[in-house]
Design a protein around this nucleic acid. Structure first.
Lengths: 209, 209
DNA sequence: CACGAAGCTGAAAACCGGTTCAGTTTCGCG
DNA sequence: CGCGAAACTGAACCGGTTTTCAGCTTCGTG
């Protein structure tokens, strides 16, 4: 099974090796997060990890390989974090609220993770695409389930509607994460989630009076 | 006044020069759009433009300078395109619908433009930020106006709410543009806009029965 | 403790593309 | 036509990076 190193014959055999690999991975996350893929240097990674330059190539084939591994790992971590937060939500609307808040808070705590995933769009497009496709697919299934159970309104477009809704909601989350997680913290994750979820649950149309 | 070249003493003085500059700009857009900032090469730009390598430096200080100029230009073009489409919308909800459809269609027609603006996040962060801040601010004002005129529902959070709504709607648009404009065309811009606008105008909450 | 495997080292090779510049051609105008 | 300015050329320069590799150290095991 592929691990983070992604390369069977580069797997560490000893405890010392595993420790070095772990430090390299953490150093790579820090370096890429702080400087971006192209500005990041292998020497920067090995300096952060406290090992010599050549050691990097004991565990990775190339700069791009670590980056891809990192994106995969962070993709998993993000989805796991949101899924965990949402686990006990009583219904879909509550899940939306909790999931969004968790996502923004996560972005705020791990800005490098957000940046690395987004930069993958230009460095490892296939991994980026896979990340959002799988995210969107899980989302779509959740929405379809909720719609079938009658928890949320069914629109007129059926099938494709769940998917488009999922992409719309993901886009919302990502941009709110960027604006209120990365760029400025003038609203708390909870406040942002309240506003956004009211928007998508109640809608903008005026009712009654 | 700064032009696309952005550098007064590099302005062309002759018709021939203006023509070459225009060709370089178009070539740069094509090269950056196709290969991304780092893969793109000045030789690639000059080859596309049909001029020698050195000619590039008659009009630009550096690779990054063209890129920034291009992002500014494309930022303007995108906003102008959407503003034009929305101009005669009877009310805010109609404007949302028309604007979103126009944005997705525009992305589909000019994918390189979408990519260049998004890559600016990692190449010219200040320009990227300025792009979305100005977009969001205009959006916020439109929403606030509509809210005050009673065209759309007012939430409980007042002031900051317009802004957060604006970011949520922008995020939606950008991701729907990516998914249905760039990645796959299994729904038309109009169909996507219908679904997304129903989502934000009617909301997900079930009503009545 | 011996010894093969694993891990580590860092100087140097290999590569690369942005930028410069001295020389040449073309333009615009009197 | 003549001449200075503008535009154009592309080989060479340059600073930077990633990657390699031959030699050395440490580990784990019998």
């Amino acid at each position: 099974m592929a691990t983070l190193a992604g390369n069977a014959d580069k797997e560490p055999r000893t405890e010392r090796g595993r420790k070095t690999l772990r430090r390299l991975i953490e150093a790579a996350a820090a370096e890429f997060g702080a400087r971006g893929f192209h500005e990041a240097a292998i020497t920067g990674i090995t300096r952060r990890a406290g090992v010599a330059l050549g050691t990097f190539y004991t565990y990775f084939e190339s700069k791009e390989e670590v980056f891809r591994a990192l994106v995969l790992d962070m993709s998993r971590a993000t989805r796991a974090h949101v899924a965990e937060a949402v686990k006990h939500a009583p219904d879909r609307l509550a899940a939306e609220r909790i999931g969004l808040e968790a996502f923004i808070a996560f972005t705020r705590r791990h800005p490098e993770l957000y940046r690395i995933i987004e930069e993958a769009q230009f460095v490892a497009h296939d991994v980026y695409r896979a990340h959002y496709l799988s995210f969107a697919d899980a989302y779509r299934r959740n929405l379809a389930g909720a719609r079938e159970r009658g928890e949320i309104a069914a629109g007129a477009k059926g099938d494709k509607e769940d998917e488009a809704r999922a992409w719309a909601l993901i886009g919302m989350s990502v941009f709110l994460g960027m604006r209120y997680g990365l760029w400025d913290e003038d609203l708390s994750p909870g406040e942002v989630a309240d506003i956004a979820i009211e928007l998508v649950s109640e809608g903008l149309r005026k009712r009654g009076g």
